[in-house]
Design a protein around this nucleic acid. Structure first.
Length: 542
RNA sequence: GCGCCCAUAGCUCAGUUGGAUAGAGCGUUGGCCUCCGGAGCCAAAGGUCGCAGGUUCGAAUCCUGCUGGGCGUACCA
């Protein structure tokens, strides 16, 4: 149980009693221990409109506070007017008991209880293996889903795809060409065809399973290619611990008539007109600078239209939260989708769009240009082969989605031993090892320990770090930026490793050993929770 | 041209509703293993937070302009 709500209430009452302006009180961990454990800038904010000196105001607020000495050991005021709180050691001892009692439930939120959420991610069409770029999105999406689940949401992980477009046709033609080439006929790949080696593999499989006399337009080419590729995509995702609950095919919206219905609904609202043989969406009437084509002059809808229908479909399924994860190349399309839904009177507030920047692959100091069609990409599968799923997941998640990620393949492979993920996992393995070592010497873990024996600075620092976990997790839910969890865990591991070098756990001093065993057990719980959330293993041995 | 994103140590990046001395890893230099795993710890060096203004008691963070880069700006998806 964090102290923040308690302090916020006390501070709010004090400002009220002093007749100062009411503002939202913010409390943050102090960066420098000199300033206690928690600080607030309340007086700085409140003094100005009241025409008072911030420092004196801080002192006045402090004078009005009556705090439980079991929780707060000391209150100080520092220039220019910060109020600092030093937490009592008893508070941290209580925290330790809480973590051990709650176990993996520690820090879990309830704000999503009884609510459902949908996270759509990856959504690559089955035209080729997943690339490294898809990998970033896959990990990001899965981790965001984990964060939601942590806070109680019932999450559906969804994969949206289109297996009927031009690219799929091209794929089928490419497979057919390779099929005939394998049979010794000189059939060229279509222009702009798919050149990857996997196309040849699919062709060979078709020969093995369906024989050698398929005609050029046989639907088996497309069907077999899709099946093969989709199986590979799913297998790759599975290796990273990612399972989608639901696959939605764009085609279903054509078959159900939802596409036509959508156009009709927009037309009824007056947002549709026809020109140059195409059907246009009058986005200029809704504040945009350019109208958009929804149905081409060929009669085929553009990608925008099914996207709109798909989002209407998700809204109608009744999720409290709908998260779309897109690459930066989609940034311009979702506003049109949202505008269309609003035009039809939908409340779009459940929809939250997360845009991630691209991954630039660097090999031998040079950028690798990626194209699925030309097969010049590095596949996600290859990356996992090289680095292992834990490293891949952690690498993608430890950076903010807004950063243009430079992925140096040589470096990642060379430094795999020094990779931060091993640092984290090593902390966990170390804890398990110490506990095992203790058991061998007859130290049973017991809840009957004396926490007041934990007085060493690195012990207290570790406790303070553990105290931040629930806050970190709720911030992660607000901002949906998983890297703050990764950064927190690294910092926790650092505190643990420091503690380890300074404080021996298993010693002749039994009571102290018991207390330290309790401490590292708590660290283990939080590490486990955090790593699980990131989808990274917490190994007992390395 | 217009829109979105980015620019922080030699390199890769943290720094999230504006706070106190801007951090970490890698790399470089120098220390720490009779004892729970050295995949660890400690220390040093390394910064005009792209540039110039502005707002503020206080700016890497907010605003404006500029420079440089990524992605869009299709009757491709």
């Amino acid at each position: 149980m964090s102290l923040k709500p308690y302090l916020i209430q006390a501070l709010t009452e004090a400002t009220k009693a002093l007749d100062l302006p009411a503002v939202a009180v913010r409390i943050a961990p102090s960066k420098n221990p000199k300033f206690g454990d928690l600080s607030t800038n309340l007086a700085l904010i409140v003094a100005k409109p009241a025409g008072k000196n911030p420092y004196d105001t801080a002192l006045a607020i402090k004078g009005r506070l009556s705090l439980d000495a079991d929780k707060i050991a000391e209150v100080t005021v520092t220039p220019p007017g910060f109020i600092n709180f030093k937490l009592s050691e008893h508070y941290y001892y209580g925290l330790l008991a809480t973590i051990l009692n709650e176990g993996r439930g520690f820090g879990r939120g309830t704000s999503g209880k009884g609510k459902s959420a949908n996270v759509e991610f990856v959504s690559a069409n089955p035209t080729g293996p997943l690339t490294v770029g898809h990998g970033r999105q896959a990990v990001l999406g899965d981790t965001v889903a984990n964060i939601l689940e942590w806070h109680g949401f019932d999450v559906t992980r969804e994969y949206y795809y289109n297996d009927a477009g031009r690219q799929m046709r091209l794929l089928a033609e490419s497979v057919a060409a390779r099929y005939y080439q394998e049979l010794g006929r000189d059939v060229p790949l279509p222009e702009d065809g798919y050149q990857g080696e996997y196309i040849v593999e699919i062709a060979r499989q078709i020969i093995n399973r369906l024989g050698d006399n398929l005609s050029p337009g046989d639907p088996s080419f497309r069907r077999e290619a899709e099946k093969h590729i989709f199986n590979n995509i799913k297998a790759t995702l599975t290796r990273m611990g990612i399972e989608h609950d639901r696959f939605t095919n764009e085609k279903s919206f054509y078959e159900s008539g939802a596409i036509t219905e959508f156009i009709n609904d927009l037309r009824a609202k007056g947002f549709i007109y026809e020109a140059e043989g195409a059907v246009w969406f009058k986005t200029t009437a809704l504040g945009k600078t350019q109208d958009r084509v929804l149905i081409k002059s060929t009669g085929e809808p553009t990608y925008r239209l099914p996207d709109m229908v798909y989002h209407r479909n998700k809204l109608e399924r009744g999720y409290e939260l709908i998260i779309d994860i897109f690459g930066a190349d989609h940034q311009d399309t979702y506003p049109d989708v949202l505008i269309a839904l609003e035009a039809l009177g939908y409340d779009i507030s459940p929809i939250r769009v997360l845009i991630h920047q691209f991954v630039t692959l660097v090999r031998s100091g040079e950028k690798v240009k990626m194209s699925t069609r030309k097969a010049t990409f590095i596949t996600l599968e290859e990356l996992i082969d090289e680095l292992g799923p834990d490293v891949v997941r952690f690498f993608f998640i430890m950076r903010g989605m807004n950063s243009h990620l430079n992925f140096d393949l040589d470096l990642a492979a060379d430094q795999s031993e020094k990779n931060p993920v091993f640092y984290l996992q090593y902390a966990h393995a170390r804890i398990v090892n110490i506990i095992r070592h203790g058991e061998n010497l007859g130290y049973e873990f017991t809840k009957d320990y004396d926490p007041t024996l934990l007085k060493h600075p690195s012990e207290l620092a570790l406790l303070k770090k553990l105290d931040q976990f629930p806050d970190i997790m709720s911030t992660a839910l607000e901002i949906l930026e998983p890297q703050i969890v990764a950064n927190y865990l690294l910092s926790l591991a650092t505190h643990f490793h420091k503690f380890y070098t300074e404080c021996r756990v298993i010693t002749e001093n039994h009571p102290l050993s018991q207390a330290r065993l309790a401490l590292i057990s708590a660290v283990r719980i939080v590490l486990n929770s955090g790593l699980k959330l990131l989808g990274v293993n917490a190994p007992e041995r390395m």
